[in-house]
Simulated scan of single mutants.
Amino acid sequence: MFLVLTACTSPATKEDDKENAKTITYGTSGTLYPTSFYNDDDELTGYEVEIMKEVAKRLDVEIKFVEMGVDGMLTSLKSGQLDIASTGIDQTEEAEKDFSFTEPYKYSFSSMVVRSEDADNYHSVTDVKGKKAGGAASTSYTKTAEALGAEPVIYDNASVEEYFSELVNKNIDVIMNDYYIQREVVGFYPQFDVKQLDIYYNPDQTSFVLDKGNSELIEKVNQALDKMIEDGTLTKLSEQFYDGSDVSQPLTEDYPTVDTSKVE
């Protein structure tokens, strides 16, 4: 845990506190290429993972990676088992009651992947109505699908291969997610006969998420992120993992927004 050290009487407890203060526990999926995944050398890497490694280096602390799904991350942030996480939840007024968000490290928008044979049946984002949309619980993508009348099919921290297998096997009809991630994974897994549609919506920005009371850590992380933006580190990492695209810069185009305010 990244906490202020407090006076105590037990020498063992002091050592525990000192050790904890030198470690950030970070929740990530470990299954989502190219943002959090295992490379050919079985090393955890990806855009978000490498950002957090660099943040830890600049804060002179160790980082402990814990892999889990979004619901697990949110619960673990509140219980103190995680210090910080990449959750995929929107920075809404409701979410800000329980969680704090860092400065954005990614600007993007949403798209859809469907079976190639069905691509001509989609002309706008509203065409997902009545379809089965695969996704993770609590994410903005699943809420969008539900708001549009799709039937959410929930998976717990599933890999891209699992989602694509479910799609081609017709257990789901559509995957709604981040444009840049979907662009990369469709090209990375050519064995699946799927297509990313030219239908774009929901501009967004992505931040790391912390428990509401962790003000000291969020200030330090924000300082590190600001310096990484200034010195070009975020741009370099983005171009490395997103095929030359710089997702660390704000969007310059407008995209339609789906109202999810009525979705719990």
Score class of each variant (00 low, 15 high):
2 F>K: 07
2 F>E: 03
4 V>W: 13
5 L>V: 03
7 A>G: 03
9 T>G: 09
14 K>N: 03
16 D>E: 15
17 D>S: 14
19 E>Y: 13
22 K>T: 07
26 Y>H: 10
26 Y>C: 09
26 Y>S: 09
27 G>Q: 00
29 S>T: 15
31 T>A: 01
31 T>I: 10
31 T>C: 08
32 L>G: 09
32 L>C: 02
37 F>K: 00
37 F>L: 02
38 Y>H: 04
39 N>F: 12
39 N>V: 01
41 D>G: 05
41 D>L: 02
42 D>N: 15
44 L>F: 03
48 E>C: 14
48 E>Q: 15
49 V>E: 11
49 V>K: 06
52 M>Y: 04
53 K>S: 09
54 E>M: 00
55 V>S: 01
56 A>Q: 00
59 L>S: 12
61 V>L: 08
61 V>A: 12
63 I>R: 05
64 K>W: 04
68 M>R: 13
68 M>V: 10
69 G>F: 09
69 G>S: 06
70 V>W: 06
72 G>T: 10
73 M>W: 05
74 L>F: 06
76 S>F: 05
80 G>I: 10
81 Q>H: 11
82 L>M: 12
83 D>R: 09
85 A>S: 15
87 T>Q: 07
90 D>H: 15
92 T>I: 06
93 E>Q: 04
95 A>D: 01
97 K>D: 05
97 K>C: 05
98 D>C: 04
103 E>H: 15
105 Y>K: 10
106 K>V: 10
106 K>Y: 07
107 Y>F: 13
109 F>T: 13
118 D>L: 03
118 D>E: 15
119 A>V: 01
119 A>N: 08
123 H>Y: 14
124 S>A: 05
125 V>W: 08
128 V>E: 01
128 V>F: 08
131 K>T: 14
131 K>E: 13
132 K>C: 09
132 K>E: 00
135 G>Y: 13
135 G>E: 08
136 A>I: 15
137 A>T: 12
138 S>P: 00
140 S>I: 14
141 Y>Q: 08
142 T>D: 14
143 K>W: 09
147 A>I: 03
147 A>T: 06
148 L>Q: 02
149 G>W: 01
150 A>T: 11
150 A>E: 06
150 A>P: 11
160 V>Y: 02
162 E>G: 12
163 Y>N: 10
165 S>N: 12
166 E>Q: 15
166 E>N: 15
167 L>Y: 00
172 I>Y: 08
175 I>P: 06
178 D>M: 00
181 I>L: 10
183 R>M: 14
184 E>N: 07
184 E>H: 05
186 V>H: 07
186 V>F: 00
190 P>F: 12
190 P>Y: 15
191 Q>M: 11
193 D>R: 10
197 L>Y: 08
197 L>V: 04
200 Y>A: 05
200 Y>M: 02
207 S>Y: 07
208 F>K: 03
208 F>L: 08
216 E>Q: 14
216 E>I: 12
217 L>A: 10
218 I>T: 02
218 I>R: 13
218 I>S: 10
219 E>R: 05
221 V>L: 00
224 A>Q: 11
224 A>E: 05
230 E>L: 14
232 G>S: 08
234 L>G: 12
238 S>T: 12
241 F>I: 05
241 F>Q: 07
246 D>Q: 06
246 D>P: 02
247 V>S: 04
248 S>T: 00
249 Q>A: 08
251 L>N: 03
